[in-house]
């Protein structure tokens, strides 16, 4: 996946935003609590990913490099972190679903966004509300895979509570397979949120993004926000309805 992302970056380059008169002005994209929930989940996910991969590949890939004693200590701490940080991760997923569910319901605008290539192909920026179809895909992936990883993980964390040994083995296989796909999906999310798109990281970094960036990537959301704000410019009707 990393190689695929590197190839995409070499082909597409960084997605940029043209400067406009609105450049330099800021608009709040995620408040403090939203960023808190995101980063708690994200940091736990990274540790869960690495410790989870260590369960499967560590003995064959890592132990020959660092030796059995170092690997033994590392694997033990990885196991602790995997079992204990699963809880803030699950809580974070629940919070994020609660925060962003209403903005992630698929609609016709998303279909238009997908048909336009989402801005990845070419240099245009299709219309989008607070979250575009790609971001909605990430949201539902995190919600679905997060729930699946939580349930299968709990079945292993509490052995024989609900399942017998065969059931737990099935849970382990499902947990591992979804985990690998989950990591691949989140790698793509990290890419587009940092290296792949200029200005995207600010949304989760400081919480504020450049107004020109927001207008380019989430024009319908900007208009909605400005319509709510008495001091901001009102809806201009510059864009046709995206579903038309």
């Amino acid at each position: 996946m990393i190689a695929a992302l590197a190839g995409f970056f070499l082909w597409r380059g960084r997605i940029l935003t043209d400067d406009t008169q609105e450049s330099g002005k800021k608009i709040l994209r995620f408040n403090g609590f939203e960023r808190f929930a995101h980063w708690m989940t994200a940091t736990c996910f990274i540790i869960l990913s690495l410790s989870g991969l260590n369960y499967i590949f560590g003995k064959r890939l890592l132990m020959p490099l660092i030796g059995p004693e170092a690997f033994g200590a590392l694997a033990q701490w990885a196991k602790y972190s995997h079992v204990y940080l699963a809880w803030p991760f699950m809580l974070g997923v629940v919070i994020m679903v609660g925060l962003w569910l209403k903005d992630n319901i698929p609609n016709r605008i998303d279909w238009a966004w997908i048909k336009a290539g989402g801005g990845f192909i070419g240099h245009g920026h299709p219309h989008a509300e607070r979250f575009n179809a790609g971001q909605k895909g990430v949201f539902w992936m995190v919600a679905g895979f997060g729930a699946a990883m939580g349930v299968t993980g709990l079945m292993m964390l509490f052995p024989f509570a609900l399942l017998d040994i065969n059931g737990m083995q099935v849970m382990q296989v499902i947990h591992s397979l979804i985990g690998v796909v989950f990591i691949v999906g989140i790698l793509a999310h990290i890419y587009i949120g940092t290296l792949g798109m200029k200005g995207a990281y600010d949304a989760m970094g400081s919480g504020e993004v450049d107004l020109a960036w927001a207008r380019a990537h989430h024009d319908l959301w900007v208009e909605e926000q400005q319509a709510k704000t008495a001091s901001g410019p009102q809806f201009t009707g510059r864009h046709p309805a995206p579903a038309e």
Binding site: W39, M40, T43, C44, V83, Y84, W87, L91
Partner: peptide, 23 residues
């Protein structure tokens, strides 16, 4: 940055709580 630091602290705190509860 404050949100990020708070997230790290909360993750560790919840992890420690989970450790005591499970143990």
């Amino acid at each position: 940055m404050k949100a990020f630091a708070a997230a790290i602290i909360a993750a560790i705190a919840l992890g420690v709580l989970a450790m005591y509860a499970l143990t």
